[in-house]
């Protein structure tokens, strides 16, 4: 596994385009301070404890896989970071500040479902939401329309989807739609990218494409990525660490440290066996 871990898909051809964000960036230039800090964070929703005293730090530029069984609080964790859910206890810091809605430094693509009404929406319209979808007014009379289209096309090109620009979103495949959502999330030049199950509903070849794309963006932009997934195997070559959630608790570390029988048994509070077979890791013994 450790040899696989070194086959990191690093592509540096975009390094010159690394955005210079005018906003707060405590990590730049100095020693890499934590970009995300959680200290004893608990979340209760509808009387149910989703997260319980979760503590971890994530450094700038890390590619983290967020793993765990259904209902372990993976999506909830992302929503806490986005300021959409308030923790009932504990302290959360992102870029040294409390989470808040509308933070331009965070790009977010939620768990994807096909949109019924998306027939009359072109790819470029969907991606454009990331640029000015939150602004008031129709945006029909703004002066920088050409510049706006240029920015959108640049983002489309970055995810290899420029040819899809004028296609109706509803006609695109799951992998293509996922590319658009990533492009949309990239438009505010975020320093942190939160992706909720971007690999679900993708066949293997598209899964590999999306993973390579995200890894490239992460390394080229020095962007921190939290990617929620139910399977760590396709991600093992590219990630730095895994954040494993189960029963409201969290374990973080390199895959070979966390995805072990002893760590996961402690996390689940039940005997769990990690089996390596056919070059893949399998977690057995619990309902995952």
């Amino acid at each position: 596994m450790s040899t696989q871990h070194n086959q990191r898909a690093i592509s540096l051809h975009l390094a010159s385009e690394r955005p210079s964000s005018p906003e707060a960036d405590p990590g730049a230039g100095t020693t890499p301070a934590a970009i995300i800090e959680l200290e004893g964070v608990s979340v209760c929703l509808g009387g149910r404890t989703i997260l319980q005293e979760v503590t971890f730090n994530i450094r700038p530029g890390e590619f983290i896989a967020v793993l765990g069984p259904n209902g372990a609080g993976k999506s909830t964790l992302l929503k806490v970071l986005l300021g959409l859910i308030k923790p009932s206890a504990g302290r959360v810091r992102i870029f040294g500040q409390a989470p808040r809605r509308g933070n331009q430094l965070i790009g977010y693509a939620p768990q994807h479902r096909t949109l019924e009404g998306a027939l009359s929406l072109r790819a470029r319209d969907l991606v454009g939401f990331g640029l000015d979808g939150h602004r008031w007014g129709p945006g029909w009379f703004i002066s920088g329309r050409r510049r706006r289209q240029a920015i959108i096309e640049e983002a489309l090109a970055e995810v290899d989807a420029l040819e899809l620009a004028d296609m109706p979103v509803a006609l695109l495949s799951g992998g293509e739609q996922q590319r658009l959502l990533i492009a949309q999330a990239l438009l505010s030049q975020p320093r942190l990218l939160l992706l909720d199950e971007p690999l679900s509903n993708l066949d293997i070849s598209h899964e590999q494409e999306i993973i390579a794309l995200i890894a490239r963006l992460c390394r080229a932009r020095g962007m921190t990525v939290l990617l929620v997934s139910h399977d760590v195997n396709p991600l093992l070559p590219v990630i730095d660490r895994v954040l494993y959630l189960a029963r409201g608790h969290a374990a973080i570390g390199r895959p070979e440290q966390v995805i072990t029988s002893s760590t996961l048994s402690a996390l689940y509070g039940a005997p769990v066996e990690v089996v390596e077979a056919l070059g893949r890791l399998f977690v057995v013994g619990v309902d995952i």
């Binding site: 809605r101 509308g102 939620p110 998306a118 945006g139 949309q184």
Partner: peptide, 23 residues
């Protein structure tokens, strides 16, 4: 509707991302 146009369109298609973006 003109005033609300962009946030309304955004939140109609993708309410979760719109909320995260501060709509």
């Amino acid at each position: 509707i003109l005033l609300l146009f962009r946030p309304l369109l955004f939140s109609s298609y993708d309410p979760e991302v719109a909320a995260a973006r501060g709509v």
